[in-house]
Amino acid sequence: MEQDMGDDGEEDDEWRFSVILDGHESEIKSVAWSAGGQFLATCSRDKSVWIWEEMEDDNFETIAVLQEHEGDVKCVAWHPSEDMLASASYDDTIRLYREDLDDWTAVAVLSGHDATVWGVDWEVVEVSPLTVGEDEETAGPAELKAQRAKLLQERVAAGPRLVSCSDDLTVRVWRRVPRDTAAAAQGKNDMPSILRNNSIEEEWVEEARLPKRHERAIYSVAWSKQTGLIASTGSDGKIVIYKEQWLAKSDPSMEADVAANGQNEGDAPAPSASSSTALTEWVVVAEAEGAHDVFEINHVIWATRRDKDRRTEDEEILVSTGDDGEVKVWTLG
């Protein structure tokens, strides 16, 4: 990774003060806009998540105060295409919320981390780097191509995945189990019925744990919307970049082992995970130690590069902020 501090010389737009949103009883740790821009979410050390709706004339109305967590709430992130919110907490869990009959409620609890969950971020399915092409040298025999194509179809059906980072030194990827898949697994689709379950609860499972590279708490994780790369950073001052790729080959016995024992060596079991997850692996493609000298790094985020030295129109940069009071811009190269 190379540090890049290019500047295209454009002047910043003028910003003006607009409104104060008041209500939390302690430090506000994170804010996030929904994909459509209608909702704003905030979270706090007061263990609550607030959802605000923008009204006319720069006015905001509180539409939900969610108090599902048992500890400080560290981060909130909106689903990229649905009005669903994820929150990460000091209570070691991730919670997902949706609106139901004019009220917001928790629809899933993602448990598994052994310590504070500091950050979460969403994938964008449309930019998955994984493809299955006839001319792809690594695709192998027709059976393997079919397995890979099935995996990609399953991911589209499940929707964007979620990545999380924690004090337990792990970065984990979670996926939704589509309702028809969950029902089939429980034998509920054997007999047709006119009865319908109106519950909006969702089933999510841990799909993978990324290779361990951090020695201290991981504070922030970001999923690139352009390349599908994941970046993590934290207390050890290190920035790590991960990439998902196809395994060179798929062995049925290996798939069985993975389904039982987790994707990577040292992983915990991934309940309900399809054996097709054994078709891919996450690898480290870049690592920067002491990215902010001896200081902790609090946040990383991907952004589109805009300066005059950009190599392509959609080239991405990684932006990091540290306890040294500096903001640094990085490019892969």
Score class of each variant (00 low, 15 high):
Tyr219Pro: 02
Tyr219Glu: 02
Tyr219Gln: 04
Val221Tyr: 03
Ala222Ile: 02
Ala222Lys: 04
Trp223His: 08
Trp223Gln: 01
Trp223Asp: 00
Ser224Ile: 06
Lys225Asp: 07
Lys225Asn: 07
Gln226Ala: 15
Thr227Tyr: 05
Gly228Tyr: 03
Gly228Thr: 00
Leu229Trp: 03
Ala231Ser: 04
Ser232Pro: 06
Thr233Leu: 06
Thr233Arg: 06
Thr233Tyr: 07
Gly234Gln: 08
Ser235Pro: 01
Ser235Gly: 08
Asp236Val: 04
Lys238Thr: 11
Ile239Thr: 08
Ile239Val: 11
Val240Pro: 09
Ile241His: 05
Lys243Val: 07
Glu244Leu: 05
Glu244Tyr: 07
Gln245Thr: 15
Gln245Ile: 12
Trp246Val: 07
Pro252Ser: 07
Ser253Ile: 00
Ser253Arg: 08
Met254Tyr: 15
Met254Ala: 11
Ala256Pro: 00
Ala256Asp: 10
Asn261Pro: 06
Gly262Gln: 05
Gly262Asp: 10
Gln263Asp: 11
Gln263Ile: 12
Glu265Gly: 11
Gly266Phe: 03
Asp267Ile: 09
Ala268Met: 15
Ala268Gly: 13
Ala268Glu: 14
Ala268Phe: 10
Pro269Leu: 09
Ala270Glu: 14
Ala270Thr: 12
Ser275Arg: 15
Ser275Gly: 11
Ser275Asp: 14
Ser276Val: 00
Ser276Ala: 11
Thr277Val: 09
Thr277Asp: 07
Val283Thr: 13
Val284Gly: 07
Val285Thr: 13
Val285Leu: 11
Val285Phe: 09
Ala286Leu: 15
Ala286Gln: 14
Glu287Lys: 12
Glu287Gln: 13
Glu289Asp: 12
Gly290Arg: 09
Gly290Phe: 05
His292Glu: 00
Val294Pro: 06
Phe295Ser: 04
Phe295Tyr: 09
Glu296Leu: 00
Ile297Ser: 01
Ile297Gly: 02
Asn298Ile: 00
His299Ile: 10
Val300Phe: 00
Trp302Tyr: 08
Ala303Leu: 09
Ala303Pro: 01
Arg306Ser: 06
Asp307Leu: 04
Asp307Gln: 05
Arg310Asn: 04
Arg310Ser: 06
Arg311Asp: 14
Thr312Glu: 12
Glu313Tyr: 13
Glu313Phe: 06
Glu313Thr: 12
Glu313Asp: 15
Asp314Ser: 15
Ile317Trp: 08
Leu318His: 02
Val319Tyr: 02
Ser320Val: 00
Gly322His: 00
Asp324Tyr: 07
Val327Glu: 07
Val327Gly: 06
